[in-house]
Design a protein around this nucleic acid. Sequence first.
DNA 1: CTTCGGACTGTTTTT
DNA 2: CAGTCCGAAG
Length: 846
Amino acid sequence: MCALHSRPMNDWSDDPFESYERESLSARAMAARPAPYLDELNPEQRRAAETLDGPVLMLAGAGTGKTKALTTRIAHLLNSGRAQPNEILAVTFTNKAAREMKDRVGRHVGGVIEGMPWLGTFHSLCNKLLRRHAELVDLKSNFTILDTDDQLRLLKQIIVAENIDVKKWTPRWFASIIDGYKNRGWFPDDVPPSEDKIVHCLPHVTTRVSEGGTGATRQVVDIYRDYQKRLITLNAVDFGDLLLHIVSIFKAHPDVLEKYQRWFKYILVDEYQDTNVAQYLWLRLLAQGHKNICCVGDDDQSIYGWRGAEVGNILRFEKDFPGAAVIRLEQNYRSTEHILAAASGVIKGNADRLGKTLWTAAEGGEKVRLIGHWDGDEEARWIGEEIESYQRGTRGLDPIGLNDQAILVRASFQMRAFEDRFLTIGMPYRVVGGPRFYERMEIRDAMAYFRVVVSEDDDLALERIINTPKRGLGDKALQTINAFARENGVSMMDAARTVVADGAIKGKGAKNLAELLRGIDRWNAIMRWSTQPGPDSDAVIDLDEPMVERPEGLEAPLSHVELAQVILDESGYTAHWQNDKTPEAPGRLENLKELVRALEEFENLQGFLEHVALVMSNETEDAAEKVTIMTLHAAKGLEFPVVFLPGWEDGLFPSQRSMDESGLKGLEEERRLAYVGITRAERHCTITFAANRLTYGQWNAAMPSRFIDELPEQHVEVLTPPGLYGGGFGAAASASPREQAIGASDLMDKASKADVYNSPGWARMQRNSARRSVRQPSEARNMVIDAAATPAFDIGERVFHQKFGYGAITAFEGDKLTIAFEKAGEKKVLASYVKSAGSAGDDVPF
DNA sequence: CTTCGGACTGTTTTT
DNA sequence: CAGTCCGAAG
């Protein structure tokens, strides 16, 4: 057992669930309460909330009060005394949804629900389960959860070791195949040979076959097997493993499964259409006994097929659970009739739907607005202005605050144009799911330090920090350590210890490494000593666990927050950034402080690491008025009075890649995404597209999305931007000279071009030809902007140049600056090539 | 061993 | 246009 946990974990068979959870709940929740909240539901919702026993499938269209029904159902379960809060298993797809559900159940029942420990995402619930039963799959309970980045690095190591051509078969490629297997519930031995793939080794290890060139090959499953083996040695799991390990434990240990089957008296699943096969198996195993399972979903909102979601799960629910009650929620309370009709018009294009007829009692309202723009920048500019006019109150409308307005994009690169624009006009915005705090280099470094302290088997973390800050340990030293580790089957940490001790590494590197190892041991000792129960504690002491000696020089126990600071300081990591003179160093130090601050909300380092791995986002509650920018995927489940849907161009939305990879299935998923987008809007929905878009730093002409054609005309109002497009539905182009220059005639006869456009390889072809013949649009305007944006410089000002580095301005003539560079000496450069070094970088609020 | 510069390549969506 | 990767020079 791990000494990290002050509460004993090993007596679960007597009392699987920690006793404090029980106590805090029973008295309060069990008092039978009247159920007035049921009266607030419509008949269908009410049926969904009251049909407590047996399988229930709730088909809930967008905006039909699904969460309301679900949370009322939970409240009803509690208040009717059928289950205690900790006997209900409630699974959501995102952390956000979990949080919301917790809050709303709390409101029904009265008071905070500390006692719903089993409400969470699949991943966090599995994490919790796996910590209890880790040893059944040869893990320790302090296992590390690898994020995508670690996963790829680990895969790369294996691929390289196998002499596979990494250029051709990238770690990413392997990762996606392996994830695919895991999504389907397959460990290596379960992968059917027909689903396996062959990869080739590099030529120099190829057993040469005269001309055919069929050299040595490997199977993906072999790599998968190696990968799993490595994960176990590293005491680590990836996202997919969390589920897969639990499923395999349930299968291999019926006694364990049975305990949970009995414990979870009621099971609820949100967003059922998004579950993959592994999740489906997991649920089915747990529900097998009593079959009190309620799944909620909407097949029209299934948008995660690319990561293994099987709409089939929802379609076959009634087969899996015969006699299931099927309840349809069809009354929409969110949107105006025009918005609803527009969404319905689009989704109608999909075959194979369970079919629902959404209706609303609301009448009138504004039609869905449609407008085309010259390019992405103009689109961003126009939307910015629209947001401002909603904010002021326009066209006789009441003002609508920024918090009530959102821009929903297909792909995150679209966000940039909006951020740029909003920064220049000073409009506050928040990006949801944008650049992530926990993915920043300094944060990942710091966490790697924490990881080696928490789990010394974590080679990936050690590898990350062993030479950060620089300790004089390069490739050669690392190879020595790794070779030793491999030969002797020990962890890198152990290998490093031995290698230092027997002098296989010499000089400065050896000295520094020895110091690092001493540090890690010390921090680990501090952690264990500080958390072990003191003599006065009434916690159960694990007699198998030796008492930890008080680390030298340590008077009093350190909290995990203090320890974190000690680790960062003593390791030299803080100093590393303090000594760094690059402009971003101060920001990084600030982020490190923020990290330490964030630690306060957790019980210990491990808890924090788990949270980061499973939640990833660092959502600071800020109430300030801001426009929201996010992807359509992130927007599912949310609603806004005002919604903008930019980038409705074929190839972008629907995404070319999606169609190339998954054909009609892909297109249908894109269409569902469009449906999700439109149905986020309560009162105002505006769809826009651009005739030209900058991708990869290249301008490409684009056509309006085919989904635009699917919008029912009578529910759409086409806006005419000044000068660019004639009226006309679907925005036919009036061929201005500029448009002709870039081939905007595409816009006019798109029907005849559609086939070409859909062909694979079109994108690349277009890109290549664009390079030669397509002139950058709005050239003139861009130049004006550039000139205007060129900051004014003063003599003596410190500036930064891409190539020459830092320097001070000694003279200027027009836009030609003479700069004395610190490294490169004196040069003459154009003002547009230098940045003021005073501006502290471009850290965007997250 | 580190640092620098050039070539190359990739963008959907996320727990 | 980035960010990453690789090879050459310090």
